[in-house]
Computed example of a mutant assay.
Amino acid sequence: MPAVLSVTSDQLNVWMVAFLWPFVRMLALVSTAPVFSEGAVPRSAKIALALLLTLVVAPTLGALPAVKLFSANGLWILIQQILIGAAMGFSMRLVFAMVQAAGEYVGLQMGLSFAAFFDPTSGGNTTVIARLLNVIAILIFLATDIHLMLITTLVESFHTLPIADAPLAASGWFLLVLAGSQIVSGGLMLALPLIASLLTLNLAMGILNRVSPQFSIFSVGFPVTLLAGIAMLLMLMPYMASFLAPQFAATLASIGMVLQGLRPN
């Protein structure tokens, strides 16, 4: 008589949670992290990447909480995994927000703040300079293998912050909020050389206009400022990699600190 394979509801619950909870954390990071969350990346590719990572990582996680999936605690664990993955992706996105802020500062100083178009990444209007710097940041992000390091950090997060039904600590969210300050400070540091140069140029043209009133500042001021801004931007490009690489590395370390801060007390 052939053997009959029987599966109990408890066994089915164990199999489901062993796959679903890690999958949700990974999908949350893929949906929020730079490059992975770009609108040009199909949703099916994002789900497939999270699924592949889950199939590799899930067998190494060990025992998970004995909580039914369709219960209040099971729903709470599911929400926690979404928050953890989204926090990791949001932390890395802060660097790109910093680059975009620098582009906004530069575009305003160059007189290109009106040259804006819809950016599907940010969901709003973005200046041309900000979009250009963002593309360069994406290339540096891929060239320095930060995307692979981010996936490695995601895998290690299951050991740093295991799946549990205990509530997450509030100190980790506080560290994440503090990390948002780099958007303004880092953006200003990146744009400062160009802003200082253009400010000096504007002061020089203002003095020249006062010395020689027949000098039409309005007719030549914008072309000179635009050409000088483009020249300074070309000089700034070679140094973007040396500026952003430490920022990416610091963000990866910041993600580790956030995960440590989220550990239940």
Rank of each mutant, 00 (worst) to 15 (best):
M1T: 13
A3R: 13
L5S: 12
S6C: 11
T8L: 11
S9F: 13
S9M: 10
M16G: 11
V17T: 15
V17F: 03
L20E: 06
W21V: 04
F23I: 01
F23N: 06
F23C: 06
V24D: 00
A28C: 05
V30P: 02
T32Q: 09
P34L: 02
P34T: 03
V35Y: 12
S37M: 02
E38C: 08
V41G: 07
V41H: 07
A45L: 13
A45C: 07
A45V: 14
A45D: 09
K46P: 01
A58E: 03
A58M: 05
T60P: 00
P65K: 12
K68Q: 13
K68N: 14
K68G: 15
A72D: 11
N73F: 04
N73Y: 07
W76R: 15
I77L: 06
Q80R: 13
Q81F: 06
I82D: 00
L83N: 03
G89W: 03
R93N: 11
A101G: 05
A102I: 00
G103D: 06
G103H: 07
Y105A: 04
G107M: 00
L108Y: 14
A115C: 08
A116G: 05
P120F: 09
P120R: 09
G124K: 15
R131A: 08
N134W: 07
I136D: 03
A137K: 02
I138A: 10
L139S: 11
A143L: 12
D145F: 11
H147I: 04
L150A: 04
L150Y: 04
E156A: 13
F158E: 05
T160L: 12
L161F: 14
P162H: 09
I163W: 01
A164P: 07
D165S: 15
D165C: 07
D165K: 14
P167H: 06
L168I: 06
A170V: 12
A179V: 00
S181E: 09
L190S: 05
L190D: 04
P193V: 05
P193M: 05
S197R: 09
N202H: 11
N202Y: 02
A204F: 10
M205I: 14
M205P: 02
M205S: 07
N209K: 12
N209A: 15
V211M: 12
S216I: 08
S216N: 15
I217Y: 13
S219V: 11
V220K: 11
G221E: 06
P223Q: 08
V224S: 09
V224K: 03
L226Y: 09
A228T: 06
G229A: 05
M232E: 10
M232W: 07
L233W: 02
L233T: 08
P238C: 05
Y239I: 00
Y239Q: 13
M240C: 04
M240L: 15
F243A: 15
L244F: 14
L252T: 08
L252D: 07
A253Y: 12
I255T: 01
M257K: 15
P264M: 03
N265W: 07
